[in-house]
Amino acid sequence: MINIQDVTKIFSSKMGDVVALHELNMQIPDNKFVLIKGPSGCGKSTLLFTLGGLLKPSSGQVKVLGKEPFNMEEKERTAFLSSQVGFVFQSYHLIPYLTVLENILFSKNAGNKDVSEEQAQTLAEELNITDRLKHYPSELSIGEKQRVALARALIVKPELILADEPTGNLDPENTQVVLDHLRKFQQSGGSVVMVSHGNEADHLADCIISMKKGKITNIRTN
């Protein structure tokens, strides 16, 4: 369960304060595929990073999987997020000096999970990147990089995946591969919260949250 109450996030700059999130309230049950949609700058990614414990709100309460990450000590929060929450970023965040296999296995150390190279190879086969396991990120296509990032998130078997525009830079074929695996993860008992500009994942969503100017304007359940 994700539960946020009266969450506000304000960024301060020389030009003045910017309210990125304004008194948001939301509950998301477990085992759901949720989309967060809205125009650029509406607060979608800020909300996702807040749910993932990466961006502390200026005020309000955030509960994720029964825990309050911002009330934890940093070490405890890092351990919780690494083991229970998988992140898939639009910009991939792959480590350039590690091979594809090493990138996929990297999160096992942070998550303190019993993950094997065999599991990584199985995921790579499912995502059609087996022939890239010894390559480095600079040698990959955009679609391959995103599939590596997805494998890295999936391998620790988290309870929740947070995906920030994971198909934004992909062609239709790679978009479908990524969406199929996110759906498979959700159907196996996990939860997915995905930020999206487009409509390609609408048919998969149990719930679509619309945002505008830092506010939730509509929550539609399917």
Rank of each mutant, 00 (worst) to 15 (best):
V34A: 06
R132E: 00
E200W: 04
D6C: 07
A20I: 04
N199V: 13
N169F: 06
G41Y: 07
P137H: 02
F87E: 06
H181W: 14
D17Q: 12
A120H: 03
A151W: 01
E126P: 00
D17C: 02
R132S: 05
R147E: 05
G111Q: 07
Q186G: 06
G38R: 12
Q90Y: 05
T8V: 01
D180L: 05
E125M: 03
C207V: 15
G53D: 07
V34G: 04
L160I: 04
T99A: 08
D171I: 09
H203W: 01
H203E: 11
I2G: 04
T217A: 06
V62I: 13
D171F: 02
A151H: 06
N112E: 14
G60K: 00
L133T: 05
I28G: 04
L24N: 12
I129E: 02
N218F: 11
Q90S: 10
K213E: 15
D131G: 02
G189W: 07
Y136I: 00
E74R: 14
Q146L: 08
R183I: 08
V195H: 10
I219E: 14
E200N: 12
V115Y: 06
N218Q: 15
T122C: 02
I219R: 13
D6S: 14
S40L: 07
Y136G: 00
T130W: 00
F87A: 07
P166F: 10
S91G: 07
D114L: 12
K113G: 10
G66I: 09
G16F: 07
R147T: 02
P57I: 08
P172M: 08
N112F: 05
E73R: 15
Q84Y: 11
L127G: 09
D171Y: 05
G214L: 04
G52Q: 14
K213I: 10
T99V: 02
L65H: 11
V19F: 02
I10N: 03
N3C: 11
L123D: 03
L182H: 00
K157Y: 05
V100N: 07
D17P: 00
E68N: 14
V178T: 09
N174M: 09
M72C: 10
P96G: 06
M1V: 13
C42K: 04
Q186P: 06
D164Q: 13
M194W: 12
N112C: 12
L54P: 08
V85W: 10
L51P: 10
K75W: 09
I155P: 05
R132L: 02
V62D: 11
G52P: 13
F106T: 08
G43I: 01
T221V: 10
L47F: 01
N222Y: 11
I142K: 01
Y92P: 06
K215T: 15
R147F: 02
E68D: 09
L48W: 06
Q84S: 15
K145D: 05
L81S: 11
Y97K: 13
K184W: 06
G43P: 04
L133F: 03
P96R: 03
A120P: 02
S59K: 15
V7N: 01
E102Q: 03
